[in-house]
């Protein structure tokens, strides 16, 4: 395997991009990531993006987004209808083939242009589930209820996760929401879909993120402390909610195992958990000990950009390794209903 590292990361998140179109808010992020990488735009070997046209309600919106990158003279480019974390995986594979030495990866989304919870219903079984239009929060609530009934946690556990996340988000300039409420204060608020309250569900917004990847010697030559990808894996559970044990995330367990999460201590973990109970499920799936600092950014609960959030989780870990505040960490991304698909990326500094 070739050594591949994240050498730069940039992000932009807001509750609502009411003026700028995707290109207008993506371009500064891409430019910032490229400038910080120390590699010229024209020298980057591959470009891969993650987005969904359903969020914009516009066909081929992902092609228009290339205006932010500069695709002339023609570039090697690809796109996944997935979170940018999966675009990162494709770019990592591309570098593994030896065809390229570096890659630009970005993810972007306007989750606030429509009702994200309804748009996501279109990703369900089109015959028997989508016609019922289950809201994403409702599906997550079914999972949270099963999790509580199985004795894995309580509503207070949810409040504790949310309280800790909102406090952590106070020091994150990219957070959409933050707060210093105690669990008791949060428990006094009304349900959205019981047992979930509004603060237990991700704060959706608009935004983008970008990272630059580079292989071994190139990464070392442009970056004093690259965030090396020591393991990366993604797995999928069945799409049908009825055939899964919703209180677990077997695909996250397997991806974590294959990525080598447990091989050494993990200083920091950024878990893409758009609902509070999912953080607990993922923490268990990845076998993270109490000593691991989980979601120091506040996580998806405090700022959720659909199609970018997973790449941001990996980027948040990379950022801490690049700056030397962490040595080994794990970034996680999810997609699909109730943690159906999971990607785990283990990063390490030298």
């Amino acid at each position: 395997m070739r050594d591949v590292a994240i050498i730069s990361f940039a992000q932009s998140v807001s509750a609502r991009e009411s003026e700028r179109n995707e290109v207008e808010f993506l371009m500064p992020v891409v430019r910032e990531a490229i400038a910080a990488s120390g590699i010229e735009r024209s020298e980057i070997g591959f470009t891969c993006s993650g987005s969904s046209d359903f969020l914009q309600g516009q066909p081929f919106a992902f092609v228009m987004a290339l205006d932010a990158v500069g695709a002339w003279p023609p570039i090697r480019e690809s796109h996944v209808e997935q979170d940018g974390a999966w675009a990162l995986y494709e770019a990592w594979v591309k570098i593994q083939t030896g065809e390229v030495e570096s890659a630009l990866v970005y993810g972007f989304g306007k989750g606030a242009s429509g009702d994200l919870g309804e748009i996501l219903a279109l990703s369900l079984d089109p015959y028997c589930v989508t016609p019922l239009w289950p809201h994403a929060d409702s599906i997550a609530a079914l999972q949270a209820r099963a999790w509580i009934e199985a004795g894995r946690g309580t509503e207070r556990s949810l409040a504790e996760i949310t309280s800790r996340s909102r406090r952590a988000a106070r020091s994150n300039p990219h957070a959409i929401v933050s707060g210093d409420e105690t669990p008791d204060e949060l428990l006094a608020r009304p349900y959205v879909a019981s047992p979930l309250r509004a603060h237990d569900c991700a704060a959706n917004g608009d935004g983008a993120s970008a990272v630059v990847l580079a292989a071994g010697d190139l990464a070392r030559s442009v970056c004093s402390r690259p965030a090396w990808i020591r393991g990366i894996d993604h797995r999928v559970d069945p799409a049908s909610l009825g055939v899964r044990d919703l209180t677990r995330a077997p695909s996250a367990e397997l991806a974590g195992l294959r990525a080598g999460v447990g091989r050494d201590r993990i200083d920091v973990a950024e878990l893409y958990a758009p609902y509070a109970h999912q953080e607990a499920i993922l923490r268990q799936a990845l076998g993270l000990p109490e000593t691991t600092n989980v979601n120091p950014s506040g996580g998806a609960l405090c700022g959720h950009v659909m199609m970018s959030c997973g790449l941001q989780r990996i980027g948040e870990v990379a950022r801490r390794i690049l700056s030397g505040t962490a040595d080994r960490g794990v970034g996680h991304a999810t997609h699909g209903p109730a943690l159906q698909q999971n990607l785990v990326c283990v990063l390490e500094g030298e």
Partner: peptide, 8 residues
């Protein structure tokens, strides 16, 4: 689905 579209 309803969208609140922004031309930019």
């Amino acid at each position: 689905l309803e969208y609140d579209y922004t031309p930019g």
